[in-house]
Simulated assay, not measured.
Amino acid sequence: MTQPKPRKPRPLGSLLFYFGYFSALLVIGAPMALLSIPLPLRQRFSLLNIYNRFVLFWLRITCGIEYRFSGLENLASPPYVMVANHQSEWETIILHTLRPPLCTVLKQELLQIPIFGWGLRLIKPIPLDRSQPAKMLRKVLKVGGERLDEGLSVLIFPEGTRVPPGKRKPFSKSAAMIACKAGVPIIPVAHNGGEHWDPKSWIKLSGTLSLRIGKPINTQGRRADEVMAEAEQWIETQLAEISAVPRPTLATTESDAAPKDATQA
């Protein structure tokens, strides 16, 4: 197996990336959103994913980021609840291109962004109002279950927010609660996207980005906390192998409050 390429800052490439990123939102994103309105949901995803695929292509060209994926065969039998660590915007883009349609739990504010938010509304997300935390979990459980009943898969980031490389937050068990109630498996996903796409910096880092998809975790007849613990352990084990920045063990983060809601992309 070839060794991953080292990370290097790409300031000029990052400028070019963002120029194409925002230009494509107008040139590709807006027309695709309009054209997809009368289409069935699965065709909407295919059309809107043209923009996502361009962003990933352009990121590789301008910033020298290569991708190493494994476990794609584990996405063969939807519906399921996908859970992933959350570090950057990269994973919210790439995961929608792997096995659409995929309904994401996300911040309600994202739906207000011109063009971008319009497209999100067309693919049946599960928006959360952070000003009403008491209602968030109930909404995720209700709407998430409805999406699964429709045969759609659901994406949840159980850390509840973006967590930088080298940091850790306990996982909320809401994803497992939805999956256990619906009797569908959980698909765990681990990646090191934040080591190349830092949400707090406009400069991207070149190198090899890894994403691993685990085997489906059975939920039938099991408790949600047991299922979530298995998914979290798998993700942490993979991150220990692919991350350049070590993460603390769960024992060192027990003092942190666990997320009360499911996730916010």
Score class of each variant (00 low, 15 high):
T2M: 06
K5F: 03
K5W: 04
P6W: 02
R7A: 03
R7W: 01
R7M: 00
K8C: 00
R10K: 15
S14N: 01
S14E: 00
Y18E: 02
L25C: 05
V27I: 13
I37F: 13
P38F: 11
L39H: 11
P40Y: 13
L41F: 13
L41Y: 04
R42M: 06
Q43M: 12
Q43W: 15
R44S: 07
R44A: 09
F45M: 08
L47D: 04
L48H: 02
N52L: 13
R53Q: 14
R53W: 07
F57S: 11
W58N: 07
Y67V: 12
F69S: 05
G71L: 07
G71I: 02
L72H: 14
L72R: 15
E73R: 10
E73M: 06
P78M: 11
P78N: 12
Y80W: 11
Y80S: 13
H86P: 02
H86S: 05
H96Q: 15
L98H: 08
P100G: 08
P100V: 07
L106C: 07
L111V: 06
I113A: 08
F116Y: 13
G117A: 02
G117F: 05
W118V: 01
L122F: 04
I123A: 06
K124P: 04
P125F: 10
P125Q: 13
L128T: 04
R130V: 09
R130N: 09
R130G: 03
P133W: 07
K135G: 06
K139F: 07
K142I: 05
K142C: 04
E146Y: 08
L148M: 09
E150I: 06
S153M: 04
V154Q: 11
L155A: 14
I156S: 13
I156Q: 10
P158G: 11
E159A: 06
R162K: 12
R162Y: 00
R162N: 07
P170N: 05
S172G: 09
K173L: 05
K173V: 13
A175N: 06
M177W: 02
I178N: 00
A182V: 04
I186L: 09
P188R: 12
P188K: 13
V189G: 09
V189I: 14
H191Q: 15
N192F: 01
E195M: 05
H196S: 13
D198F: 00
D198C: 03
K200F: 00
K200I: 02
S201D: 12
K204D: 03
K204R: 14
K204M: 14
G207K: 04
S210W: 04
G214Q: 11
K215R: 15
T219L: 08
Q220F: 08
Q220D: 09
A229S: 14
E230R: 01
A231C: 13
E236S: 10
E236A: 09
T237P: 01
L239W: 10
S243I: 07
R247E: 03
A251T: 07
T253F: 00
T263L: 06
Q264G: 11
